[in-house]
Design a binder for these strands. Structure first.
Lengths: 212, 212
DNA sequence: CCGGAATGGATAGTGAAGCTCTCCGTTATG
DNA sequence: CATAACGGAGAGCTTCACTATCCATTCCGG
């Protein structure tokens, strides 16, 4: 398969494929001459994954590069997931030390109650801290939301169980990390859409007059 | 409060405040002269909300403008939430008709089983359709994930109940829509971080050797 | 085996987004 | 009354994700 065919098979323009090659998102094809290369089905698959992470997952090209590099290097799964979480974080800038300490405390408590391991340096914890600080600063639904953190955490536990069931039901252990990345990034989008539909229905159930 | 103080109080640079004024995200201050204005605490609050939606929520300036306009116009809550969902959608371009029909079918079934109302034109359904089509196209965890859609939907129902509990526990009905927006946008980030931590713990529980 | 098309690779350019800078004439302030 | 800050408008800047143009080399149909 050559460039034009790869482009046709994946739906990604030739110029864009070249760009992904330059950025290291896509591994170079197998050389057949000093300046010719051949591509395979795995390149098509990889391109689809890249587009999914970019378009649906909303990751940046740089983040996709890091995630894919981690996937290819057979890094531990949790590390890859942490990188995928980088969607939003950017180092939690602009949070003052007092808020940060408070949030870390909240997270530590929560983690202890739910048997989680919350390392303060992980991107996930950073994201959580930033979100908690922002909620606190906005103050609107502050205590109400914090009082229900445990409820959310319990639901997160259940969701994670389903996530792991999904992943472990996969046949090929080879692409399991890749599938986990897909599940994580697209799973977030999926769940947030489902949650919105459920909110709508629940809201109607509570506030609209009963019929029937 | 004048421009410089507003900037100091909110942590947003003067030039950026002016930019948000131009874009209509922030309502103009109260005029004290033909070309002087005064700002209040609500402007500070609004600026914090804008930054939260931009930085943590990841919405675009244009989307924030639409969401805030909807909030200010006392539009129905579900409409405001639909707008906030626009984070990712962009019209679900590039999905062929067959995939689209399949996904709509899946969503309709799911909605029927869970008592949801899924209008095909809503941004939420569009987001769901795009995500489902992408998952199907990637094929990796395809059937495994689809087989567990109902599980996720059930968890989404539970989450929505907690969401509604949080919102209805608020005292001031005035800012309830605003609080709902915050809860929705930041709630997604919050839940996804919790889910990641829970996944990590669950993964360790299943795959690491027991200790103790 | 020859000539036009396609290829890999490099460099430069494009357009959108989100600010940021500079001016300007006016107005508050010590 | 000087000077600093103000509101407002426009242009400029930077980053990001592509996209377009070149070029020398290589493939491929006749």
């Amino acid at each position: 398969m050559r460039m034009a065919e790869l482009s046709a098979a994946s739906g990604v323009p030739v110029a864009t494929v070249k760009y992904y090659l330059r950025e290291g998102l896509l591994q170079p094809g197998e050389r057949t001459s000093p300046n010719q290369a051949r591509y395979g089905d795995d390149h098509v698959q990889r391109l689809k994954l890249i587009r999914a992470l970019l378009d649906v997952g909303g990751l940046s090209v740089a983040t996709v590069g890091e995630v894919l590099a981690a996937v290819d290097s057979h890094a531990p799964t949790h590390k890859v997931l942490g990188l995928a979480q980088n969607v939003l974080v950017g180092s939690a800038k602009g949070v003052d030390e007092e808020s940060r300490a408070w949030a870390l405390d909240v997270v530590a408590d929560l983690a202890a109650r739910h048997g989680w391991k919350a390392e303060p340096e992980s991107p996930t914890v950073a994201a959580l801290v930033l979100t908690l600080c922002t909620i606190r600063d906005l103050a609107q639904a502050h205590d109400g939301l914090l009082a229900r953190l445990d409820d959310y955490a319990t639901l997160a536990d259940r969701t994670a169980e389903v996530d792991l069931d999904t992943v472990t039901s996969l046949p090929s252990l080879d692409r399991i990390v890749e599938a986990t990345v897909i599940g994580t990034v697209l799973g977030d989008r999926l769940f947030s859409a489902l949650r919105r539909l459920a909110q709508s229905a629940e809201s109607a159930r509570r506030f609209l007059p009963q019929r029937g």
